[in-house]
């Protein structure tokens, strides 16, 4: 009897572990978001070649072109990899010590190859030796192309109206 219980419990635990560890679309999207945040982050004194590499890799996580909409900054358009990289490079130069994180991420699969993501982007960094923090709610569309998930549209949700 004890042996039976042990076998059943072991099977259940193994099944749960397997299910938990197996890759799936949601995990891949979360991994890409985490990677995007890490690539957009910058540290002071970062080597130029590292910055260029990060910027290039970050752009590759997005579609070419990628739609970006930030109403408060009058940004609304589709950006090629090159334009995206240039803006990201400019941002890394302007904010040389900034950490990006995504939290409260919710992913809804609209279709097998299209996902709608709601997340909060937090920025923590320093400008002229003064610490700053900022946060934005983002709506992101991700598409599955050739077996890989890439981000195709970013929209900042302006929920606070002055």
């Amino acid at each position: 009897m004890n042996r039976k219980i042990i076998v059943i419990v072991s099977l259940l635990l193994s099944g749960t572990l397997l299910f938990w560890l197996l890759p799936n679309d949601e995990k891949e999207i979360r991994k890409n978001l985490h990677q995007l945040a890490a690539l957009c982050s910058s540290t002071e004194g970062e080597a130029t070649i590292t910055i260029l590499n990060s910027v290039r890799k970050a752009a590759k996580l997005c579609r070419d072109p990628c739609a970006v909409k930030v109403e408060s900054f009058d940004i609304n358009g589709a950006f090629s990899h090159r334009e995206f990289s240039n803006y990201l490079l400019m941002m890394k130069r302007t904010l040389p010590d900034t950490h990006f994180t995504f939290s409260d991420t919710q992913i809804n699969f609209l279709q097998e190859d299209k996902a709608f993501i709601t997340t909060t982007l937090s920025l923590r960094g320093k400008i002229k030796q003064q610490r700053f923090t900022d946060a934005y709610e983002l709506d992101i569309i991700a598409l599955k192309t050739e077996g890989k998930w890439i981000f195709s549209a970013f929209t900042v949700v302006e929920f606070m109206e002055r």
Binding site: S103, D104, A135, Y136, E137, L138
Partner: peptide, 10 residues
């Protein structure tokens, strides 16, 4: 005031 969830709020 929440953003996308309650881990980061205003």
């Amino acid at each position: 005031v929440r953003f996308a969830g309650k881990n980061v709020m205003l």
